[in-house]
Design a protein around this nucleic acid. Sequence first.
DNA 1: CTTACTTGCTTCGAATTCGAAGCACTTTAA
DNA 2: TTAAAGTGCTTCGAATTCGAAGCAAGTAAG
Lengths: 164, 164
Amino acid sequence: MTDTPVSLTPTQLSAYFAFTEVSSLLRPAVEKQLRDVGALSYVQFQLLARLGDSPDGTLRMTDLADGVVYSRSGLTYQAQLLEQRELITRSPSPDDERSTVAAITGAGREVLQEVFPGHIRVVRELLFASLSEADVDDLARILGKVAGHLRAAPPRSAAPRRRR
Amino acid sequence: MTDTPVSLTPTQLSAYFAFTEVSSLLRPAVEKQLRDVGALSYVQFQLLARLGDSPDGTLRMTDLADGVVYSRSGLTYQAQLLEQRELITRSPSPDDERSTVAAITGAGREVLQEVFPGHIRVVRELLFASLSEADVDDLARILGKVAGHLRAAPPRSAAPRRRR
DNA sequence: CTTACTTGCTTCGAATTCGAAGCACTTTAA
DNA sequence: TTAAAGTGCTTCGAATTCGAAGCAAGTAAG
């Protein structure tokens, strides 16, 4: 076992605190915009955006949940809401009868289009307004490293299930 | 009004996505550790930590809520739980009869001590393990800028109240 | 084939969260 | 002084979240 220091360095501490602070200030602002413009929760927006990005506008429920780092039961709930509003459809997969495939609808894409500009504006004004181009480069590079490192850990839905 | 681009640059996009991804992967990991070791939610930990940092171990409820970017009603709920476990006390302020002052107890400080080492370990392993010292410097500097920028916006609890 | 295990999703109940409304105290201004 | 407005906190109800348990379909081992 290698020697692990008891504390973080002062710089690490300030990086960590700044990260949590930015995270908890940015999120409500983004959520407010999404709710005001498209009546979407942040999760719903993420789900629609992921579906919209998918080549055929389609994803399995589990892949959706992993993509947004979200519990499966929570996804079922939000997907129900999106389905009621006819922004997505759900249908059993032909390949695997257990699977449910979610697909974004035309209305879903419309809502995305309505919400995007404001979403981008909020992110630019809050996250990027005070940064230089070099800062943005660094931020992308560094957080990209961290994200890759975190992705290496097994995804939530892969957690082994308890024996019955 | 100046010309605002319709989209974000590719680098801004990847910085934004990496940020949200790190945020949503880091948080559950931290929460799990806090719950396992100290039976604390993330919010409860933040509240205790802020109280522990305060010179006299004391803060007004509103300042606590602003500090952790949290709704006041949610704070009331969590403070009740912490008070039941006798990790904090609440008492009316002598200065202002409306105010409630929260104070961390000895037991509260003990729980903090128990939880800290693991908390730090998780943060180091997940957030910093893959970064060089220079990266950490940059991250602290850049996110510090953003946090300062965000703090400039009025805090949540300052939102004007609707007329009755 | 058939039994046991695995996987994908949903249902369920408990816990947490928020905003609106309400109560009590404080400050302002006439 | 006293009414009106502001501030600090709590209560309330609705919405969201999670994990555990359950169901159904797939897969592996004998």
